[in-house]
Computed example of a mutant assay.
Amino acid sequence: MNLYTLVLDFHGGTYITQFDAATATDAVAAWCKELEDEQLLGDASFPVAEGIMVDAIENHLVEVEGLHGAWCAAASVNGALALLNVIITQRLD
């Protein structure tokens, strides 16, 4: 398992969380499930999670140019961009 840090920029807010997962895509799937279950963005939670999963799965996570171990996925929700960055993270313990 790897530790992934996920950073969502959406509607003027930045939301940061971490997940243990086998792959970056698995980390995104876990994040999307938590987003839907906990309704972390209120009414926007489901469409953001659904849009990010479609982008991450169907279009694959896009590696951030010039970086190693960093990917992104995006979705447009009611005219607002939801940009998710996924970064493999080193444990310090």
Rank of each mutant, 00 (worst) to 15 (best):
T14C: 12
W31D: 08
M1Y: 05
T14S: 12
T5A: 06
L61V: 04
G12H: 07
D37Q: 13
V7M: 11
N2C: 11
F46G: 09
T25M: 05
V62F: 00
L83G: 00
A82K: 07
G69W: 04
I87R: 05
H11M: 08
V77Y: 06
E65K: 15
T17A: 09
E34C: 01
A49F: 03
L83H: 12
T5P: 02
A21S: 08
I87Q: 11
H11W: 06
K33P: 00
L6A: 03
G51Y: 12
L6M: 05
N78Q: 13
L8A: 07
E63W: 00
I57N: 02
T25C: 02
I57R: 09
C72V: 02
Y15L: 10
L35A: 07
V77W: 06
Y4P: 10
G42H: 04
V48A: 03
I16N: 10
A30C: 07
F10Q: 06
G51W: 08
A73L: 04
E38M: 14
L83F: 03
A24G: 04
E38R: 12
G12D: 09
V7L: 14
A73K: 01
H68L: 11
W31A: 09
F19D: 12
Y4N: 11
L61A: 04
L92G: 14
T23H: 01
N2G: 10
I57M: 05
R91N: 11
E58L: 03
G66K: 05
A82C: 09
L41P: 08
H60P: 00
E36N: 09
Y4G: 04
W31C: 10
V28C: 00
D26Y: 00
L92H: 14
F19K: 15
S76R: 14
M53H: 04
Q18W: 05
Q90M: 06
Q18D: 10
D55R: 02
N78M: 12
L84H: 03
E58Y: 00
V48M: 03
E63K: 13
I87G: 01
A24M: 00
A82D: 09
L35E: 13
L3V: 12
G42I: 07
E34P: 00
G66N: 08
T89M: 10
Y4T: 05
L40S: 13
A75S: 15
E63C: 02
E50G: 00
A49K: 03
P47A: 08
G13K: 11
Y15A: 05
D43E: 15
A82H: 06
V48W: 04
A21V: 08
F19Q: 15
V54C: 01
T25D: 01
V62P: 00
S76N: 15
S45P: 13
T14W: 02
R91Y: 06
A29T: 15
K33Q: 14
N85D: 08
E36I: 09
G13T: 13
N2S: 15
A73E: 03
A80P: 01
I16T: 15
I16G: 02
E58Q: 07
A56V: 04
L3F: 02
S76G: 10
L67Q: 15
F46R: 15
S45F: 10
V77F: 11
T5L: 03
I52M: 07
P47T: 13
D26F: 00
N78C: 13
T5E: 11
H68N: 11
A73M: 02
A49G: 09
V86S: 01
Y4M: 07
D55W: 03
A21M: 03
L40D: 10
K33Y: 14
P47K: 06
